[in-house]
Design a protein around this nucleic acid. Structure first.
Lengths: 202, 202
DNA sequence: CACGTTCCGCATCGATCGATACAAAAACGG
DNA sequence: CCGTTTTTGTATCGATCGATGCGGAACGTG
C-alpha cells in the first residue's frame, strides 16, 4: 500500500485546511465553543458546512483540532518557557507569554484554554472536559518542572513545586480573565512584575 | 396612590420569586449564560416560561437579577472584606471568601462573575458586558480601598493601589478558574497562604 | 354571585441550532 | 472517453433556541 504523498484520486480540495482551521481557531477563541455557531465558523473559514464535516468531523472535533493548533501556535510559549534554565526564568517566561498572547492587538483577547468553555450546557460538555484536561496538563508539567528545579538546587529544598505551580497557573488564568475584560497590556505587565518580585514563594 | 404591601387584586402567584431566582442563579452559575437554556432554567425554577417572562422580563433580565442576588449572597464576602481594618486583612478576607465560595461542596464550582459569560456569541453579549462591568466594579472598589490604606499609613507610601488591586483580582480569578476545573479547596488555600505571605507586593 | 384583575397551562411562533442527503463537479487511472 | 473517487453546492432535516397568544383559573371587590 502506497502511503506516499502522491495525490489521492478524486476532486482536489478547493481550500487550505490549515488556513481554515486557523480561522476557526480565532472564532472559538473570541466567542467560545458554545458562542461559535456553525454558521459563524464556516463563514469565517470560507467553506460550506459540507466541507467542514468532511474535513474535520464535527464541531467538537473541529474544536479539538483548533485547540491543538492553539497549543502549538499562540500557546507555544509554554513549552519554550519550560526549557528556561532556572525556575525564575520559567515563571517569568510563562507570565510574559501569557500577557503577550492574551492581549494581542489584532486578535482575540484572553486565553482559549480558559474562555473556550469554562462553564457550559450539555452540548458543550465535551469541549469543557477537554479544556479541563488541557489546563491540568499545563499545571502538571509546570509542577514537574519545579520539582526538577528543587532537585537541581535551583529552588530551595523547602519550596513546594505543587504550590508554586498552582500559584503561577492561577496568576496566568487571572491575567487571561482580565485580558478578556479589556485590561491593558502594560497594566498587566506592571502587576506581573510586582508579583514576580516575590518569587519564589515560601 | 397606595404603595403599601397590601395584596394586589388578582390571582396570587403560585411560587416564591426569591426561591425561583435562587434556582436560576444556581443554573447560570453552573452552566453559564449561554449554556443555561430557558427550558433548563424554568424547570429548575419550577415555573413555566410564561411565569418567568411575566415576573423577570426575559433571559437577560433574569441573568441580571441573578447576578444581583449573587453579589448580595454568595459574593457578599467582598463587601464585608472591604471593611476589614488593614489592607492585609482585606486581601486575606477576599481570597478566603473566594476560595470558600468557589468550592462549596453542594453548589456550582467557580465564580458566576467569571464563568457566567467570559466569551460569548452575539446572543450573550449583553451578559458578557454586564460581567465585564461587574468585575471592573470589584477592581475599582478594591483599588480605592488600598488607596485609602496608603493614605492611612497602613500601606507604605510607595505601594501602588492599582497594582495591588490588579494582583488580588487576578489571584481571585485564577482561583475561580481552578475551582471550576475541580481543584481541591485545601490545595487552593495552601497556595493562597503562600501568596499572601509576600503581601504587600512592592 | 358577577366583575375586574392577575396569573398560569398549553400550544405555538419564527429563527437558529448542529448535522445530512443528494447530485453535480473535478480530479485520477485505465 | 469511461468508470472511480473525492469534493462541493444546495437544500433540508429534526431538534432546540428564546419568546408569545390565548383562554381558563384563581384571587379581591362590589
Amino acid at each position: 500500500m502506497e502511503t506516499g504523498k502522491r495525490r489521492a484520486a478524486g476532486r482536489p480540495r478547493g481550500f487550505d485546511p490549515d488556513a481554515a482551521l486557523e480561522r476557526a481557531l480565532l472564532v472559538f477563541w473570541e466567542h467560545g465553543y458554545e458562542g461559535a455557531s456553525l454558521a459563524t465558523l464556516t463563514e469565517a473559514m470560507g467553506i460550506s458546512t459540507t466541507s467542514m464535516y468532511a474535513t474535520f468531523g464535527n464541531k467538537e472535533e473541529l474544536f479539538r483540532k483548533a485547540l491543538e493548533r492553539y497549543t502549538e501556535g499562540p500557546s507555544a510559549y509554554v513549552a519554550r518557557a519550560l526549557e528556561e534554565p532556572t525556575a525564575f526564568d520559567v515563571a517569568t517566561a510563562i507570565i510574559a507569554g501569557t500577557i503577550r498572547t492574551t492581549t494581542r492587538p489584532a486578535g482575540p483577547h484572553g486565553c482559549l484554554g480558559v474562555q473556550g468553555a469554562l462553564a457550559t450546557g450539555d452540548a458543550g460538555r465535551g469541549a469543557r472536559d477537554l479544556l479541563v484536561d488541557w489546563r491540568d496538563d499545563g499545571y502538571s508539567t509546570l509542577r514537574d518542572r519545579f520539582g526538577q528545579a528543587v532537585d537541581d538546587g535551583d529552588l530551595p529544598p523547602e519550596a513546594d513545586p505543587a504550590v508554586l505551580a498552582r500559584y503561577l497557573t492561577a496568576l496566568a488564568y487571572g491575567i487571561a480573565v482580565q485580558a478578556a475584560s479589556g485590561v491593558d497590556r502594560a497594566e498587566l505587565q506592571e502587576m506581573a512584575d510586582a508579583a514576580l518580585r516575590a518569587w519564589p514563594l515560601t
